[in-house]
């Protein structure tokens, strides 16, 4: 049903329907941002490139061909554009070298990169070190891949309730550690 709406929306966009276009934007933005950030974790670059993807899509709306999977289409489009931007940014590097820059970071690294100031980065880094690799993997599946408990349970051969408990446990550890750190910081300043 959802896919059908999306399919119809795609057609409406080719006919110049603004509302359908904004629906597409709203539906896919955060997933694209998350994907883009994994390709290359530079917030401003990703924001600007996503806008360009949609500007271009709107500008060429009448020439768009039918797309079965808009999500995959947009992601491919975005990745190509990010690579182009990186080629401009690192003009002296070869395309092979630039290819080696992308998709390089682990989940923890991305979370840390996402923090904008160095104090929060340090805090988060220290807190994430408190988690076991197993906890970190479950957190990644839950908040990054955004799977539901059933899906994670299936993948890890656990009961959904166990997965939930593990997530909540990991969050508690993180929260308590962050609290201690931020109260220390507060005390220092």
């Amino acid at each position: 049903m959802e896919n059908e709406t999306e399919f119809n929306d795609w057609y409406r966009i080719t006919q110049g329907d603004e509302k359908a276009f904004m629906r597409l934007y709203e539906t896919h933005y955060q997933a694209l941002y998350s994907f883009g950030f994994r390709v290359y974790p530079d917030k401003d670059l990703i924001k600007d490139t996503i806008q360009e993807v949609f500007f271009e899509l709107w500008a060429k709306r009448t020439e768009l061909s039918v797309v079965q999977n808009p999500k995959a289409y947009l992601a491919t489009f975005l990745k190509r554009k990010i690579l182009k931007e990186l080629e401009k940014k690192y003009i002296s590097l070869s395309p092979e070298h630039i290819q080696s820059l992308v998709f390089e970071r682990s989940y923890e690294d991305l979370l840390i990169e996402q923090q904008t100031d160095s104090a929060s980065r340090d805090q988060l880094k220290k807190s994430l070190e408190r988690l076991t690799p197993g906890q970190l993997e479950i957190i990644r599946l839950k908040y990054y891949e955004q799977l539901d408990y059933e899906q994670i349970a299936e993948q890890l051969q656990l009961q959904p309730r166990t997965v939930y408990n593990k997530v909540s446990e990991a969050l508690k550890t993180l929260r308590l550690h962050l609290k201690v750190l931020s109260s220390l910081l507060f005390f220092l300043f």
Binding site: Y33, S34, K47, Q51, Y144
Partner: peptide, 15 residues
């Protein structure tokens, strides 16, 4: 902190 996404207010501005 654990999801990779653009903060809501920044997203609203982009939109």
């Amino acid at each position: 902190m654990l999801a990779i996404r653009l903060a809501q207010d920044e997203f609203d501005l982009e939109k």
